[in-house]
């Protein structure tokens, strides 16, 4: 018995030696509950921003961790950028603005007002900034479709003959970028498919594949989607298919070659930027992941066709959405 107790004692001492000593976990509660004070006022590092060359940095400093939100509004475009966080310091690490937008449309060359709100303390502050040059698409970005020149005749299009069908490039105030976008919608109560557009690689060059890199970790697919679902059904699905022509014969064989998919339920109202790394796309069959049918490797340089399909459950039948700025970017998602 004594030996056992001695052994247990030695094990306990040995174990206690491997526990690290910290003062406490998390932020100081005393500090969290202290009276709020702004130690450095809210400001921006430049009065005029050229987003082709650099970002605008907002800054402020408080005496404790608070939840804060900076809302930047364009005076002409009415575009809105929201930056939020929970910290004691606002600086380049958490409040750097590259001219991008949270609520579309995009910002224009215009004056903007930036408002800092600390809701828990019922405190706010404002500053102004004017945009001299707006943000550019990142280097290496490849535009698949911005619809500024309408529907390319080399794209393949198919639309069901349902009720109130529409597939038009429109030019109106809804345009989030440039002046035009693709509007698709209608009611089809016998099939999931409302309509589709195939963006074929040979519409852009004479090759059978798009000129993307070989590394799927570096390739990001981006699209702007405007959601306006019927509140009764809340049913619109946007499915993007990426069909790899692995043997470069100009024909996609769905039984022997990889197809990667991205499906999204368009259940929001307004424009939203969707960005997905190509390496993270999966093969879908009836909405569920399955193993790819080809070499089972993501080969962005082998993509021969990108398809956009609008779908809806035929029990409901109705779907509608708008899309714009279908593009691929390298190394990071598109940041508008």
């Amino acid at each position: 018995m004594k030996k056992t107790l001695l052994f247990i004692g030695l094990v306990s001492i040995g174990l206690s030696a491997c526990r690290k000593e910290n003062t406490f976990d998390g932020p100081s509660i005393n500090e969290i509950n202290s009276k709020f004070a702004i130690l450095e006022s809210f400001k921006v590092d430049k009065s005029t921003a050229d987003f082709e060359t650099g970002n605008a940095i907002f800054s402020a400093r408080f005496n404790k961790i608070v939840s804060w939100k900076i809302t930047i509004k364009g005076s002409i475009s009415k575009a809105t950028k929201i930056i939020s966080g929970e910290s004691k310091v606002i600086d380049a690490s958490n409040a750097s603005w590259n001219g991008s937008t949270t609520l579309f449309p995009l910002f224009k060359t215009e004056n903007c007002t930036a408002t800092l709100l600390i809701a828990s303390e019922n405190d706010s502050a404002s500053t102004t900034i004017s945009i001299s040059k707006t943000k550019l698409l990142p280097t290496g970005a490849r535009m698949i479709a911005n619809f500024e020149n309408g529907l390319d005749p080399k794209w393949t299009k198919f639309f069901q003959s349902g009720a109130s069908m529409e597939c038009l490039v429109k030019a109106d105030n809804f345009a989030p970028e440039g002046t035009k976008y693709l509007n698709m919608g209608g009611t089809v109560n016998w099939d999931w498919l409302i309509g589709l557009v195939d963006f074929n690689a040979n519409a852009y060059n004479n090759n059978v594949t798009f000129p993307f890199s070989t590394n799927p970790e570096n390739e990001y697919f981006n699209v702007l989607i405007y959601g306006d679902p019927d509140p009764k059904t809340n049913m619109t699905k946007a499915l993007f298919q990426f069909k790899e022509d692995e043997n470069s014969d100009g024909v996609f064989d769905p039984t022997k070659e990889d197809e990667y998919d991205y499906s999204v339920d368009v259940n929001w109202v307004g424009w939203r930027l969707i960005s997905v790394k190509y390496a993270e796309m999966v093969t879908l069959e009836n909405g569920s992941p399955i193993p790819p049918k080809g070499n089972k490797l993501h080969n962005p340089d082998k993509i021969g066709k990108i398809s956009f399909l609008q779908l809806a459950n035929p029990d409901f039948g109705f779907a509608r959405c708008k899309i714009d700025l279908v593009s691929f970017t390298q190394n990071k998602a598109l940041d508008l």
Binding site: R19, S28, I32
Partner: peptide
């Protein structure tokens, strides 16, 4: 507690 949570 063995280690404090937001406090010593």
């Amino acid at each position: 507690e063995i280690r404090g949570q937001g406090s010593d």
